[in-house]
Protein backbone atom coordinates (compact mmCIF):
# COMPACT_ATOMS: atom_id res chain seq x y z
CA UNK A 1 0.00 0.00 0.00
CA UNK A 2 1.26 3.47 -0.78
CA UNK A 3 2.02 6.08 1.78
CA UNK A 4 -0.71 8.09 3.48
CA UNK A 5 0.64 10.95 5.52
CA UNK A 6 -1.61 12.27 8.22
CA UNK A 7 -1.92 13.93 11.57
CA UNK A 8 -3.05 12.12 14.67
CA UNK A 9 -4.43 14.47 17.27
CA UNK A 10 -4.38 13.41 20.87
CA UNK A 11 -7.35 14.97 22.61
CA UNK A 12 -6.04 13.50 25.82
CA UNK A 13 -3.34 16.13 26.01
CA UNK A 14 -4.55 19.00 23.85
CA UNK A 15 -5.01 22.01 26.11
CA UNK A 16 -6.51 24.22 23.42
CA UNK A 17 -3.62 26.65 23.28
CA UNK A 18 -4.03 27.59 19.59
CA UNK A 19 -0.30 27.25 18.93
CA UNK A 20 -1.08 25.02 15.98
CA UNK A 21 -3.47 27.65 14.66
CA UNK A 22 -1.15 30.59 14.46
CA UNK A 23 2.02 28.65 13.69
CA UNK A 24 0.19 27.21 10.69
CA UNK A 25 -0.90 30.64 9.57
CA UNK A 26 2.55 32.01 10.10
CA UNK A 27 4.29 29.32 8.15
CA UNK A 28 1.85 29.19 5.31
CA UNK A 29 1.08 32.84 4.70
CA UNK A 30 4.66 33.39 3.57
CA UNK A 31 4.97 29.97 2.01
CA UNK A 32 3.91 28.12 -1.07
CA UNK A 33 0.32 27.98 0.18
CA UNK A 34 0.21 31.73 0.84
CA UNK A 35 -0.96 34.25 1.24
CA UNK A 36 -3.68 33.83 3.81
CA UNK A 37 -5.56 37.05 3.89
CA UNK A 38 -7.19 38.76 6.84
CA UNK A 39 -10.14 41.08 6.53
CA UNK A 40 -10.85 43.79 9.06
CA UNK A 41 -7.59 42.98 10.77
CA UNK A 42 -7.93 46.02 13.01
CA UNK A 43 -11.66 46.63 12.85
CA UNK A 44 -14.94 45.01 13.72
CA UNK A 45 -15.23 41.27 13.19
CA UNK A 46 -11.73 40.42 12.07
CA UNK A 47 -11.80 37.37 9.86
CA UNK A 48 -9.22 35.56 7.83
CA UNK A 49 -8.04 32.41 6.18
CA UNK A 50 -6.72 29.74 8.52
CA UNK A 51 -5.97 26.12 7.71
CA UNK A 52 -6.41 24.94 11.22
CA UNK A 53 -8.75 25.93 14.02
CA UNK A 54 -9.05 24.89 17.59
CA UNK A 55 -12.55 24.61 18.91
CA UNK A 56 -13.95 23.97 22.35
CA UNK A 57 -16.83 21.72 23.33
CA UNK A 58 -18.40 21.02 26.67
CA UNK A 59 -19.53 17.48 27.23
CA UNK A 60 -21.94 16.60 29.99
CA UNK A 61 -23.51 18.61 32.75
CA UNK A 62 -21.99 20.23 35.79
CA UNK A 63 -20.20 18.87 37.76
CA UNK A 64 -19.57 15.97 35.38
CA UNK A 65 -18.32 18.22 32.66
CA UNK A 66 -15.56 17.48 30.22
CA UNK A 67 -14.09 20.37 28.32
CA UNK A 68 -12.79 19.10 25.01
CA UNK A 69 -10.41 21.14 22.92
CA UNK A 70 -10.72 20.06 19.37
CA UNK A 71 -8.23 21.09 16.70
CA UNK A 72 -9.36 20.54 13.15
CA UNK A 73 -7.71 20.93 9.80
CA UNK A 74 -8.17 19.04 6.53
CA UNK A 75 -8.26 15.36 7.36
CA UNK A 76 -6.68 14.26 4.08
CA UNK A 77 -9.42 11.74 3.51
CA UNK A 78 -8.44 8.52 1.84
CA UNK A 79 -11.64 8.79 -0.14
CA UNK A 80 -11.90 12.54 -0.32
CA UNK A 81 -15.30 13.68 -1.56
CA UNK A 82 -13.85 17.10 -2.25
CA UNK A 83 -11.61 15.82 -5.03
CA UNK A 84 -13.87 14.14 -7.63
CA UNK A 85 -16.32 17.02 -7.57
CA UNK A 86 -13.73 19.59 -8.50
CA UNK A 87 -14.40 20.55 -12.12
CA UNK A 88 -10.92 21.79 -12.88
CA UNK A 89 -8.77 19.15 -11.29
CA UNK A 90 -7.37 21.84 -9.01
CA UNK A 91 -8.24 19.63 -6.06
CA UNK A 92 -6.27 16.47 -6.10
CA UNK A 93 -4.97 13.76 -3.91
CA UNK A 94 -1.32 12.93 -4.36
CA UNK A 95 -0.72 9.32 -5.18
CA UNK A 96 2.68 9.27 -3.57
CA UNK A 97 1.71 10.34 -0.08
CA UNK A 98 -2.05 10.83 0.01
CA UNK A 99 -1.91 14.54 0.68
CA UNK A 100 -4.96 16.34 -0.63
CA UNK A 101 -3.99 19.61 -2.23
CA UNK A 102 -5.40 22.47 -4.21
CA UNK A 103 -3.53 23.80 -7.20
CA UNK A 104 -4.17 27.52 -6.95
CA UNK A 105 -3.26 28.03 -10.57
CA UNK A 106 -6.13 25.87 -11.70
CA UNK A 107 -8.72 26.69 -9.11
CA UNK A 108 -11.60 28.80 -10.34
CA UNK A 109 -12.96 29.45 -6.87
CA UNK A 110 -16.28 27.72 -7.52
CA UNK A 111 -16.39 26.48 -3.90
CA UNK A 112 -17.93 23.22 -4.96
CA UNK A 113 -15.25 21.18 -3.23
CA UNK A 114 -16.00 22.95 0.02
CA UNK A 115 -19.62 21.95 -0.30
CA UNK A 116 -18.41 18.42 -0.75
CA UNK A 117 -16.31 18.41 2.40
CA UNK A 118 -18.40 17.35 5.37
CA UNK A 119 -15.78 18.61 7.80
CA UNK A 120 -15.69 22.27 6.90
CA UNK A 121 -11.98 22.02 6.31
CA UNK A 122 -11.71 24.22 3.24
CA UNK A 123 -11.75 27.96 3.08
CA UNK A 124 -11.88 30.29 0.13
CA UNK A 125 -9.36 33.03 0.47
CA UNK A 126 -11.48 36.12 0.11
CA UNK A 127 -8.80 38.01 -1.74
CA UNK A 128 -6.91 35.45 -3.74
CA UNK A 129 -10.28 33.93 -4.55
CA UNK A 130 -9.08 30.39 -4.60
CA UNK A 131 -9.81 27.47 -2.35
CA UNK A 132 -7.32 26.86 0.44
CA UNK A 133 -6.74 24.25 3.02
CA UNK A 134 -4.15 22.44 5.06
CA UNK A 135 -1.34 21.21 2.86
CA UNK A 136 0.20 19.05 5.53
CA UNK A 137 2.98 21.55 5.08
CA UNK A 138 4.07 19.79 1.95
CA UNK A 139 6.56 22.62 1.45
CA UNK A 140 8.29 21.73 4.72
CA UNK A 141 8.18 18.00 4.98
CA UNK A 142 10.16 17.39 1.82
CA UNK A 143 12.32 20.50 1.92
CA UNK A 144 15.86 19.22 1.81
CA UNK A 145 17.20 22.62 2.74
CA UNK A 146 15.65 22.21 6.20
CA UNK A 147 17.36 20.15 8.87
CA UNK A 148 15.70 16.74 8.85
CA UNK A 149 14.25 17.28 12.32
CA UNK A 150 12.39 20.27 10.93
CA UNK A 151 10.78 18.43 8.05
CA UNK A 152 7.54 18.28 9.90
CA UNK A 153 4.39 20.35 9.67
CA UNK A 154 4.61 23.70 11.40
CA UNK A 155 1.73 22.87 13.71
CA UNK A 156 3.38 19.64 14.80
CA UNK A 157 6.63 21.41 15.54
CA UNK A 158 4.78 24.09 17.50
CA UNK A 159 2.44 22.01 19.61
CA UNK A 160 3.65 22.30 23.20
CA UNK A 161 1.90 19.15 24.35
CA UNK A 162 2.91 17.06 21.31
CA UNK A 163 -0.75 16.45 20.83
CA UNK A 164 -0.12 16.40 17.10
CA UNK A 165 1.62 13.37 15.71
CA UNK A 166 2.62 13.24 12.09
CA UNK A 167 3.41 10.24 9.98
CA UNK A 168 2.32 7.54 7.58
CA UNK A 169 -0.87 5.85 8.69
CA UNK A 170 -0.38 3.12 6.12
CA UNK A 171 2.83 2.02 7.72
CA UNK A 172 1.66 -0.23 10.50
CA UNK A 173 4.85 0.36 12.42
CA UNK A 174 4.81 4.14 12.33
CA UNK A 175 4.27 6.06 15.54
CA UNK A 176 0.95 7.33 14.24
CA UNK A 177 -0.33 3.86 13.38
CA UNK A 178 0.73 2.58 16.74
CA UNK A 179 -0.96 5.47 18.49
CA UNK A 180 -4.16 4.81 16.57
CA UNK A 181 -4.04 1.13 17.43
CA UNK A 182 -3.02 1.44 21.04
CA UNK A 183 -5.02 4.43 22.09
CA UNK A 184 -8.28 3.86 20.29
CA UNK A 185 -7.71 6.33 17.49
CA UNK A 186 -10.86 7.15 15.59
CA UNK A 187 -12.01 9.02 12.52
CA UNK A 188 -14.50 11.87 12.35
CA UNK A 189 -17.91 11.29 10.81
CA UNK A 190 -17.20 7.71 9.80
CA UNK A 191 -20.74 7.57 8.43
CA UNK A 192 -19.70 9.12 5.14
CA UNK A 193 -17.06 6.65 4.14
CA UNK A 194 -14.53 9.39 3.55
CA UNK A 195 -11.92 7.49 5.55
CA UNK A 196 -10.11 10.49 6.93
CA UNK A 197 -6.42 9.86 7.18
CA UNK A 198 -6.20 12.14 10.22
CA UNK A 199 -7.27 10.42 13.40
CA UNK A 200 -8.12 11.54 16.89
CA UNK A 201 -7.11 9.89 20.11
CA UNK A 202 -9.75 10.02 22.83
CA UNK A 203 -9.49 11.19 26.40
CA UNK A 204 -8.08 8.56 28.72
CA UNK A 205 -8.49 8.63 32.45
CA UNK A 206 -6.03 7.59 35.11
CA UNK A 207 -7.49 6.69 38.45
CA UNK A 208 -6.12 5.44 41.71
CA UNK A 209 -7.84 2.68 43.61
CA UNK A 210 -7.26 2.72 47.32
CA UNK A 211 -7.79 -0.16 49.66
CA UNK A 212 -8.81 0.28 53.22
CA UNK A 213 -5.75 -1.43 54.63
CA UNK A 214 -3.55 1.13 52.96
CA UNK A 215 -4.72 3.62 55.53
CA UNK A 216 -4.00 1.39 58.49
CA UNK A 217 -0.46 0.22 58.20
CA UNK A 218 1.99 -0.82 60.87
CA UNK A 219 4.42 1.88 59.92
CA UNK A 220 1.85 4.57 60.63
CA UNK A 221 3.90 7.39 62.13
CA UNK A 222 1.19 8.17 64.62
CA UNK A 223 2.32 5.06 66.41
CA UNK A 224 5.77 6.56 66.83
CA UNK A 225 4.78 10.05 67.72
CA UNK A 226 2.33 8.66 70.22
CA UNK A 227 -0.89 10.43 69.67
CA UNK A 228 -1.37 10.75 73.43
CA UNK A 229 1.06 12.69 75.55
CA UNK A 230 2.82 10.63 78.20
CA UNK A 231 1.63 11.59 81.69
CA UNK A 232 4.02 13.13 84.08
CA UNK A 233 5.72 10.35 86.03
CA UNK A 234 5.33 12.34 89.19
CA UNK A 235 1.59 12.75 88.84
CA UNK A 236 -0.61 10.72 91.18
CA UNK A 237 -1.38 7.14 90.18
CA UNK A 238 -2.80 4.00 91.67
CA UNK A 239 0.70 3.10 92.74
CA UNK A 240 0.57 5.86 95.30
CA UNK A 241 -2.67 4.84 96.95
CA UNK A 242 -3.16 1.09 96.84
CA UNK A 243 -1.29 -2.02 97.64
CA UNK A 244 -2.23 -5.54 96.75
Amino acid sequence: MSKQLALVIDLNVCVGCHACVTSCKEWNTSGAAGYMSDDNPYARDPTGTFFNRVQTFEVGEYPNTQTVHFPKSCLHCEDPPCVPVCPTGASYKRAEDGIVLVDYDKCIGCKYCSWACPYGAREVDEHQKVMKKCTLCVDRIYDESLPSADRKPACVMACPTSARLFGDVHDAESAVSRAIRDSGGYALMPEWGTHPANHYLPRRKTEITLHRDELERVDNPLKIDGKLPKPDLRAPSLDDSTSW
Binding site: H18, A19, T22, S23, E26, M157, C159, P160, S162
Partner: peptide
Protein backbone atom coordinates in the same frame (compact mmCIF):
# COMPACT_ATOMS: atom_id res chain seq x y z
CA UNK B 1 10.70 25.14 25.22
CA UNK B 2 12.70 22.44 23.47
CA UNK B 3 11.53 23.60 20.09
CA UNK B 4 7.88 24.18 20.72
CA UNK B 5 6.19 27.55 20.58
CA UNK B 6 2.81 28.86 21.55
CA UNK B 7 0.04 30.77 19.82
CA UNK B 8 1.46 34.10 20.92
CA UNK B 9 5.01 33.27 20.05
CA UNK B 10 3.90 32.25 16.56
CA UNK B 11 2.15 35.56 16.12
CA UNK B 12 5.20 37.69 16.76
CA UNK B 13 5.13 38.80 13.15
Amino acid sequence: NQGVICAKGSSGI
